[in-house]
Design a protein around this nucleic acid. Structure first.
Lengths: 144, 144
DNA sequence: CGGTATCCCCAGGGATACTG
DNA sequence: CAGTATCCCTGGGGATACCG
């Protein structure tokens, strides 16, 4: 199985690389579903995707606007992140044939539906931040 | 700034490592919120967390049960993933002083509330899988 | 059984330089 | 302005061996 594209996340079943696929017993919770969720979360969870998607929530932005907005991102990673999002149909890339060139990136409808979930997770994170911080402190105290 | 614990995700602002923090202009969308979401998603999105959380959705499981359930995970990564979840207060670890030892892992209430969001994302992934696959195919065709 | 400790590899990603 | 191309280095994570 070859991956179709360099921007495509590796969706092959997670297991030892060259290991043979036996897959005897029925896996719990639909292994396919699980992998897909993991895939989505891997995309959503990589270092820059969330920043980009949130920046685009308010409307289209140009390449360098995003660069400034996601403070600290390298040009390379911005390009890679945007290409990945574009390939998955979450973002559109529009080139204006002017000089100097202008390229706008915008969320698609699909991208907006994902944004909703990300915002949900964001609210969860905000609401439970104190609990998480407390849990960490307790854990750290416990283990000397 | 030293990180308090080896299981703690690095929450320092994402930027060039030794770069000075100027942070002059007000960042869009509350940069703190954004980082927190990114953090949560980084936890949720790492290679194994989703598998583990879903396995625990139905009730407590022992170490080796999880190992078998998350097919392909290494012992090391299972331990690391579980420790991270435990530290964040998402999972409890219960040791029974029997011989041989028995250790149960279970979702906390906090863990369950996260599970809800993960499942939401899971449904999103399932519903939009065809759209994503189509978008990828179209993108790949476009770029020769 | 349920872990640590160690070694080691390679891909994710930053820095830099060049281009249409 | 909006990217490629190249180099290089770090740390995520697999394999293996050992321990309470």
């Amino acid at each position: 199985m070859s991956l179709g594209n360099k921007y495509e996340p590796d969706l092959r079943p997670i297991r030892a690389p060259q290991q043979d696929l036996k897959q005897a017993k029925e896996p719990p919770h639909e292994i396919g579903t699980c992998r897909l969720v993991g895939d989505v979360l891997a995309r959503a969870g990589d270092k820059w995707t969330v920043f980009i998607v949130r920046l685009l929530a308010d409307g289209p932005m140009r390449f360098n606007e995003l660069r400034r907005g996601a403070d600290g991102i390298s040009q390379r990673m911005l390009t890679l992140t945007l290409r990945g999002l574009e390939r998955d149909g979450l973002v559109t890339r529009t080139v204006f044939p002017t000089v100097p060139p202008r390229v706008d990136y915008a969320l698609t409808e699909l991208g907006r539906t994902l944004l909703v979930h990300l915002q949900g997770l964001g609210e969860w994170a905000m609401e439970n931040r104190p609990a998480i911080v407390a849990a960490r402190a307790a854990f750290d105290a416990r283990e000397d």
